[in-house]
Each structure stands twice: as C-alpha cells, then as structure tokens.
Amino acid sequence: MEQIINYIKPELVPVAVVCYIIGAALKHTELLKDKYIPVVLGAFSVAVCAIYVCATSDLSTVQNVLMAVFVAVVQGLLLAGGSVYVNQIIKQAKKEEK
C-alpha cells in the first residue's frame, strides 16, 4: 500500500475520504447491490479527478489532453481503490479470529 500512496497526488487524498464516506452510505442503503459500490466509487473518483486535472492543466495540445485523461483515470482508480482497501482493513480488523 505504501508504494501506491507514493503515486497519489497529495491534493487529491480528500477524494479517497469522500469515496469512503459515499461507499459507507451506499452500503447502508438498499439503492445499490454491494458488488456495484466499487464501480460507482471508481466512476465518481475518476470524474472528480478529471475536473481537478482539467482545472490545473494546460490542455492546448493533444498530448496534454491525453496525459490529462490518463492522470485523471489513474488517480481516480488509485483513490477509489484506496478507499475500498481501507474499508476492507476495518472490516477484517473487527472480525474475530477462529
């Protein structure tokens, strides 16, 4: 996990916290099956990261646009994955060992 954290932009870490909160809220509702929660969190995170990357990047060339898309997708997936990972750590820590 430490290696993955090195690739996450520090200014985007709050997105992982928001993903965790959204995931926990979705888990307690019956709006969505549990298996779809990571997909929703991934899409949300990529969208938020895309907004951030577009707001902070020079999108004057095709290469810059493609790099912005790549960064938004990678950062979004890392952040959503991190929030799901933290959720699983908390769940596993609460389990009693057999």
Rank of each mutant, 00 (worst) to 15 (best):
A68I: 08
I89C: 11
E30K: 13
V73I: 15
C54F: 08
I21K: 10
A16P: 06
V62H: 01
K33G: 10
E30F: 07
A55Q: 14
K95I: 12
E11T: 12
A43D: 01
N6A: 11
V39C: 02
A68W: 03
G82F: 07
G82P: 03
F44N: 05
L26A: 09
C19L: 00
V15K: 00
A55I: 00
S83V: 10
V39G: 05
F70Y: 03
G42M: 09
V74E: 13
A47S: 15
Y85S: 02
K94V: 09
Q3R: 15
D58C: 06
I51W: 06
A80D: 05
V69C: 14
Y7P: 00
I90C: 06
N87T: 07
Q63R: 13
A50T: 12
K94F: 12
Q88M: 11
V65R: 13
K27I: 07
P14L: 00
C19Q: 02
L59D: 09
L41T: 04
A80L: 06
V13T: 01
K9D: 12
L31Y: 13
A93M: 13
Y7I: 04
Y7G: 02
K33M: 10
V17R: 01
G76K: 03
T61H: 02
V39I: 15
L41Y: 05
Y85G: 02
A43F: 15
A16Q: 04
K9M: 12
Q88C: 05
P38W: 05
K27V: 10
P10H: 02
G42F: 08
F70K: 05
L59G: 07
I5V: 14
D34W: 02
L79Y: 00
A47M: 14
P14T: 04
V86C: 06
A43V: 15
S60M: 04
Q92F: 08
Q75V: 02
N6K: 14
L41C: 06
S45R: 01
A24T: 11
Y20N: 00
I4H: 11
V69M: 14
V18P: 00
S83N: 10
K33N: 14
N87R: 10
V18Q: 01
G76M: 07
N64E: 11
L32I: 15
I5Q: 10
K35F: 12
A72E: 05
E11H: 07
L66I: 08
A50H: 08
G23I: 11
P38Y: 04
V13N: 00
V46N: 05
G82D: 01
Y20Q: 03
T56A: 13
I22D: 04
L78F: 15
V65D: 04
P10Y: 05
V40M: 10
K91P: 00
V40I: 14
S83I: 11
K95W: 07
Q88T: 12
N87S: 14
E11N: 10
K95F: 06
A55G: 15
L41Q: 04
L59W: 05
A93N: 10
A47Y: 09
Q92T: 08
V48E: 03
G23C: 13
V74R: 07
A24Y: 13
Y20G: 15
L12W: 08
I8A: 12
V46H: 02
P14N: 06
A16F: 02
I90L: 14
